[in-house]
Write a protein that binds this DNA or RNA. Structure first.
Length: 204
DNA sequence: CCAGAGATTTTCT
DNA sequence: GAAAATCTCTGGA
């Protein structure tokens, strides 16, 4: 079950609300220089709108040193530190200067699960659903850090790849976003309904 | 099962 | 000074 071809830049040069549901079922592949390949199947994402229209977005109040990658070209990573401790990863969408992105919230391990568990500090016996069922866990399990800030997902160490044929066992559902102070009223979260690797957080 | 506390950086008031 | 796109552990129902 090998992952497909990387998405072209045109895929990301659209509304984050259009891109988000199409990323559920897609593969995030991490190929380090000299280590096992890690393959993650995305099962949960959230869209953050551009153009200052989304009070839940880091870009709502304009550019800051932290969010400049979100205003950059599409198809790149916007990585930020959450609550001073964790790391979360977004895919930048829409044209440069818009400030739109999709937060990668959860995945199912497909390849390299042993290494993912070690990166997470879990025992080899830990359940698959504990490995990447949350945005902070996702980055830790895949070795994504602030060093990856602004890097391309079209080619290189980290790539986002097309799923094969639509998987009927992955019904895509929609809900309000999780963990937000403001802007939680809109249904911008997309996830694989019933999948064990979806995060435990409850929508606002 | 659910609620609360603590860890700790960036941003805003 | 306080809140935030979170996670883990603890204690109680």
């Amino acid at each position: 079950m090998p992952p497909g071809a990387p998405f072209p830049v045109a895929f990301f040069d659209r509304s984050s609300l259009e891109v988000a549901p199409e990323l559920v079922g897609a593969y995030l592949v991490h190929q380090p220089a000299r280590s096992v390949r890690l393959v993650a199947r995305i099962v949960e994402v959230e869209a953050y709108l551009g153009d200052g229209s989304d009070p839940g977005s880091h870009c709502h109040r304009g550019r800051t040193p932290r969010n400049q990658a979100m205003f950059g070209p599409p198809g790149r990573l916007y990585v930020y530190r959450s609550y001073g401790i964790h790391t979360c990863a977004n895919v930048v969408c829409e044209a440069e200067g818009r400030g739109a992105a999709v937060l990668l919230r959860a995945f199912e391990p497909v390849e390299g699960a042993v290494r993912m568990r070690r990166l997470r500090g879990l025992t080899p016996q830990a359940l698959a659903r504990e490995v990447g069922s949350g945005p902070g866990k996702l980055c830790q399990a895949l070795g994504i850090s602030l060093d990856d800030y602004g890097s391309s997902l079209l080619r290189g160490r980290l790539t986002l790849r097309r799923p094969g044929a639509r998987d009927p066992t992955l019904p895509i559902a929609r809900s309000r976003r999780i963990g937000l102070g403001k802007g939680c009223e809109h249904p911008y979260r997309f996830y694989a309904r019933g999948h064990p690797c979806v995060s435990r957080g409850r929508p606002g």
